[in-house]
Nucleic acid binder design. Structure first.
Lengths: 191, 191
DNA sequence: TTGTTAAAGCAAAGATATTTGCTTAAGGTT
DNA sequence: AACCTTAAGCAAATATCTTTGCTTTAACAA
């Protein structure tokens, strides 16, 4: 073999350490600790601070990574009830329940905060866009008139996130009302 | 005189110092500086760091104060064109232009960030609510059918802020489309 | 197994941030 | 103008974070 390719090694210890760090961040976020620094995270994770300094540029980079991981792995399977109204209502209700959980709120706020990469924020919104598109597609196949994907994002997703982020009340009734509203626009000619 | 009531004294030097600090924060925010600490702000303001430590609990408290001040004093007078559609369109367009300015985006993100007092966030949303209520009231007086205030907040304001906060495009056309959408719901029976 | 190497631990040095006691400046009052 | 008081400035002490060179551990390949 002429050359040795340096191999990265994600398994084993490195993986365990990363898991410990992610868990520590999650705990601290959930507890509302407001002085989240590398030394603090390291202590909670039972890991040497140097490891954090070597692996991430700064605390925000780490927070971003954890937040994306937490916010994108949603076990929620997409509703498929045979009716767009019911699909949207279930979907919106699930999202409402999900993003009002305290750690989720903190993650969301962290994602939004100044120094997080724009691409990471797009990952979040992109997931919702794909889900909405899928439900609209199915509705179209059934011959239902449906709002556009943009309308669903603007009038169902946006209000939910807006309210969470600005600490306004969010619940099932609200989610349902949003869906009712957006369905009224279904088929409205787009300029 | 049996007792001396300690008097606060907002005028003069204290006021100048506070102004210098607010200005410094505004500049640093606008420049995208990401290591905003008391020492950094103090240097920019030409003020002693101790003053900051004595006046605010931490950097976030100060940032919050400045952000609220910046976001609530909007010179925008409320549109009053004689038509709800035009009022809303002008209003939404103004807001869109306003909140997409780089410093505003940073202030918004700062407001949203984890450690800001909930009451402060309410100040922001409350202003918008009052403006919407006023326009709806006028529309009612003219006998126009109008969406509810909640609908305007959910379907016009929320999408604008959502998009800004998640780094999605916002412009006049978008604002106009939102207004068109919300007007379709005008008069829809609320559950 | 055994060797190689990426990544973690350790410890000391360096840089920043934060606190604290005291001094000085300047509004506001008499 | 002379005084009292709040708040700012200053400087030294302290705590916390961040970097760095070196050592040790343990995953992976031969």
């Amino acid at each position: 073999m002429p050359d040795r390719v340096p191999t990265s090694r994600p398994g084993g210890r490195s993986g365990r350490v990363r898991t410990a760090i992610y868990t520590a961040v999650g705990e601290l976020m959930g507890e509302g600790v407001d002085k989240i620094s590398f030394p603090v995270i390291a202590e909670r994770a039972g890991v040497n601070p140097t490891t954090l300094y070597r692996r991430w540029d700064d605390v925000n980079a780490l927070l971003e990574e954890v937040a994306v991981a937490a916010l994108t792995r949603d076990g929620e399977s997409l509703p498929d009830t045979g009716s767009l109204e019911r699909d949207l209502t279930e979907w919106a209700t699930l999202i409402a329940r999900d993003i009002t959980r305290p750690e989720r709120v903190r993650y969301l706020r962290a994602m939004v905060s100044a120094r997080v990469e724009i691409v990471s924020r797009c990952v979040l919104t992109e997931t919702r866009r794909e889900q909405a598109a899928e439900m609209v597609r199915r509705a179209g196949e059934r011959g239902e008139t449906a709002p556009t994907v943009a309308q669903i994002l603007d009038h169902v997703i946006a209000p939910l996130y807006y309210r969470v982020v600005f600490a306004l009340p969010v619940d099932h009734d609200h989610a349902q009302r949003l869906v009712g509203d957006v369905l009224v626009m279904a088929g409205r000619p787009q300029p």
